[in-house]
Design a protein around this nucleic acid. Structure first.
Lengths: 200, 200
DNA sequence: ACCTGAACACCGTTCAAGT
DNA sequence: ACCTGAACACCGTTCAAGT
């Protein structure tokens, strides 16, 4: 069968969803594929290359059905959707954060984001920087959101609201509120900032 | 000597700066301390606890000499300084990104950021969410900045400006421009967003 | 072209026992 | 209180050799 490379990514993602990123090893993956560990290195240069392929798979068909509307509606919808895609795979955000933007679907998404912002009126380079900043926010937020999910799922979960006798305000606001509400607020902050830039 | 725990962190950071995060292993650290690997587990519950302590050390004296000025000047200055601190240690941003906000200096910094934004006029919870969003931006930006430094230092560095025949616009804008300029732009976007919120 | 067998050079962590 | 000795249960990666 000539569909090996794709199947490796399929099973790797299944393993990720089941056991998490820390438990995703080349050896376990090989075992599940009924193959020797070394065989994987014919298909992928190394573990990171496999992770890159997995992250890119997350974004499959992402740009295919793109949201309609004004530039800020499109940008907001895409951001919400990216968060959703990352949340739909265990440790999804952490996987994506470790990759470099060089795989096809990732490039397509980045280009699309830049085009939206350019069409809105931002200069090309600023559009790129803004897209990057937004990407960092979504990743950072979702990594932390999933980290909380892991901790909650693994039992022991006390937010540590005071440390060394001083109040942990960041923890208090972050762990109490609804993650989606927090995400929406950060996104709004970002969009307001771009609008302000456009007004200049 | 009763200063063991602190010395472990000292040497761990020295090892990080010299060889990078991937080469920082408990066994190498133990060897450099002239001790058996197992000995480290008397001082730290595990490797992550050591990493947490290292990240918190990065922020030592951070809140001690806090910038003066209006709320946005203070916030901007603190952001620039955080980036600088992370850049001053190899893989510094990646180390900090892996930790949870529960160590003393990290908590102090988070609280300070929230207080600034609250004094500016943001409600307590919004101040926390905004501080988190800013933190995510700084970390995300600096991780990627250091990833580029690693790649550049390790030789092979061609930005891959096209992939599968399509242009990689994100890479083009991100790898061409001055990182500090990009950082400043993202920060401005963020501050503009907060000002917009305050105006409502 | 694709995989096996078998090795190399490591890891983090635990824990009885020592001092 | 702090560390040793020694083990346990793994890792990612390479590469000749097979088919």
């Amino acid at each position: 069968m000539r569909l090996r490379r794709e199947r490796v990514v399929d099973v790797a993602i299944a393993l990720l969803d089941a056991d998490g990123l820390d438990a995703l090893t080349m050896r376990k993956l090989a075992a599940r594929l009924g193959v020797q560990p070394g065989a994987l290195y014919w298909h992928f240069a190394g573990k990171q290359a496999l992770l890159d392929a997995m992250a890119d798979r997350f974004l499959e068909d992402f740009t295919a059905d793109w949201p309609a509307g004004s530039w800020d509606e499109q940008f907001a919808a895409a951001s919400w959707r990216l968060r959703q895609v990352l949340l739909s795979h265990r440790d999804g955000a952490r996987v994506m954060a470790g990759t470099y933007v060089a795989e096809p679907n990732t490039v397509l998404l980045g280009n699309r984001a830049i085009e939206i912002l350019q069409a809105a009126g931002l200069p090309p380079d600023r559009a790129g920087w803004a897209a990057f900043a937004a990407f960092h926010f979504v990743l950072g937020h979702t990594i932390e959101e999933q980290a909380q999910l892991e901790l909650a799922g693994r039992g022991a979960w006390e937010p540590k609201l005071t440390v060394d006798g001083i109040e942990n305000k960041l923890a208090a606001t972050a762990f109490t509120a609804d993650p989606a509400e927090r995400f929406g607020y950060g996104l709004q902050l970002f969009l307001d900032g771009i609008r302000q830039q456009l007004a200049r």
